[in-house]
């Protein structure tokens, strides 16, 4: 049932050319070079340290690694990460 709904939604998004982060509940990550990362639409912070940030997103996790990490702002669903970003990985669960 969930699979069908997801398939329908992605087809719906493609047909009407809608922004996918809204309809599919996907995170939107905006980066400025490697010093800033702006993550919108995440579903919770799991781990944060000066070298690592792990966020729960729809259907998995996003792991950002680097050093000197500081969370510049943290509002309900948005996070602005500042630091030296080296790697971003998506982990499907």
């Amino acid at each position: 049932m969930k699979k069908i709904k997801e398939k329908f939604m992605s087809a719906f998004t493609r047909t009407f050319d809608l922004p996918s982060e809204v309809t599919l509940e996907l995170p939107r990550i905006t980066m400025i070079g490697s010093i800033h990362a702006y993550i919108e639409n995440h579903q919770g912070l799991i781990i944060f340290s000066s070298t690592e940030l792990l966020l729960k997103v729809h259907q998995g996790h996003v792991r950002i690694t680097g050093d000197n990490f500081v969370l510049k702002t943290m509002i309900d669903k948005d996070i602005l990460l500042e630091g030296n970003i080296k790697d971003i990985t998506f982990e499907k669960s």
Partner: peptide, 19 residues
């Protein structure tokens, strides 16, 4: 850090978070 996550869920804006 999970405390700040909880803060965000309760609509408390936080910034300059460092571990």
């Amino acid at each position: 850090e999970r405390f700040f996550d909880l803060c965000a869920k309760f609509n408390i804006a936080s910034w300059d978070i460092e571990k």
